[in-house]
Amino acid sequence: MRIVVFCCENSAYQAARQSRLPAEVDLIRLPCGGRVEVLHLLRAFEGGADGVLVLTCQEDNCQSLHGSARARHRVEYAKEILKEIGIDPERLQWHPVTSNMGPRFQKIVADMVEGLKLASA
């Protein structure tokens, strides 16, 4: 199993540093949630990811004002594409995580792992 986690450097990446992560997680560090492209999300699946997470700042606290909101919109758009090509859109998720939310980061990843296990069973 492989989970790709796109992390905003300012928030989720800092949370990742405080959490215990399963081996199957690949962290991709981004300067801001707004940097993530639909192409990246789809390419992650193409590259063999079973689940993709986009974890960015709280929408009100994005250093680039609407970077986090844009990340969420792109995830929503990519979910539509996944649906069309027959991949469960739940395999792609967006969540806001602040830099001090290590346990929440861990929980989101654990939930994703759990969900994927159920899906493959």
């Binding site: 991709i28 990246h40 390419r43």
Partner: peptide, 13 residues
Amino acid sequence: NEGIMAQLEMGGR
């Protein structure tokens, strides 16, 4: 993009 893609493909199988 090249850098991000390379990281994505790295763990692929």
